[in-house]
């Protein structure tokens, strides 16, 4: 390359702010085991929760661009993200984490990116059967004697574990939300307790059309609130940069545009 061309590119890079301030290792949540280690834009749309992965991946790329960092992305299951951020393997974790005191002791949370709640997913037939047994429509508050799947390490699993003995619940922990949904499809569980967005993504793309939400959505018991990016507690400067980037993409509409590309409705 000619020296003048190199100088031009260097000046252009400086001018555009494209030079990375730091290298960051970023963990992006996948919804299905088949998506692990695939790049977000290469995840087959036919795989469960592909829209969610693509949304999370694009959001992660946008945040990296805004904080002017060169990011190395890892596509991992939910259970790997928080420990990885805690032990410094990852600098940013895009896992749609609900804020919780126990988690806050381990990692730092960025500003909210959207809000979520949890809801049971089951087939209408199962819901009717349990309603018959319970004498009322099934809700998370009256569910008893059922097999319930939830993603390992999630607040949903934590909640189910906490009430399992009292409610005679059999909790099945899966590595991914798609795994929980698979357990439901395979009849290994009666219900799956999932985040609403994930639940929607899975049931709306399920060709069998056998499943739907059951009972009301729940936002209490730590099962719903704002959803965050996590990062190491000691990286305060990075947290400030990420928060600034979140504020910017919310203010200029980029967040909504990303959401709109991957979901039929904007729900933040």
């Amino acid at each position: 390359m000619m020296p003048s061309m190199r100088s031009f590119l260097l000046v252009a890079a400086l001018w555009s702010g494209a030079l990375p301030a730091a290298d960051l290792r970023v963990a992006v949540l996948v919804q299905d085991a088949a998506q692990v280690s695939l790049r977000g834009d290469l995840v087959p749309s036919s795989t469960p929760g592909a829209d969610l992965v693509a949304f999370t991946d694009e959001l992660a790329h946008e945040i990296c661009r805004r904080i002017r960092s060169r990011c190395a992305f890892s596509y991992v299951t939910f259970g790997e993200i928080l420990p990885g951020v805690e032990d410094g393997s990852f600098d940013l974790g895009f896992g749609n984490f609900l804020r919780a005191p126990k988690r806050e002791k381990r990692v730092a949370f960025g500003e909210p990116i959207f809000r979520s709640a949890s809801r049971l997913v089951a087939s209408p037939a199962t819901a009717r059967a349990f309603a018959g047994k319970l004498g009322q429509a099934v809700t998370l508050d009256n569910l008893r004697g059922a097999r319930v799947a939830a993603m390992e390490g999630s607040k949903q699993q934590e909640f189910l574990d906490a009430i399992a003995a009292e409610r005679e619940l059999s909790v099945v922990a899966t590595a991914t939300t798609a795994g929980a949904f698979d357990a439901l499809r395979n009849g290994r569980v009666d219900f799956a307790l999932l985040p609403i967005r994930t639940g929607y993504a899975l049931i709306s793309h399920d060709k069998s059309r056998r499943f739907g939400f059951v009972g009301p959505a729940v936002a209490d018991h730590g099962l719903g609130d704002t959803v965050h990016i996590i990062l190491p507690r000691q990286k305060e400067a990075l947290r400030r940069s990420v928060n600034q980037a979140i504020a910017e993409i919310r203010a200029d509409g980029t967040g909504h545009r990303i959401m709109r590309r991957h979901f039929p409705v904007i729900l933040d």
């Binding site: 809000r115 639940g199 059309r209 939400f213």
Partner: peptide
């Protein structure tokens, strides 16, 4: 199928914390 997709969205929207 379309009705079902819309129903899923209704369920999703009705589950959102802002509404709850």
């Amino acid at each position: 199928e379309d009705r079902q997709q819309s129903l899923y969205l209704v369920m999703l929207i009705a589950s959102h914390p802002s509404i709850l």
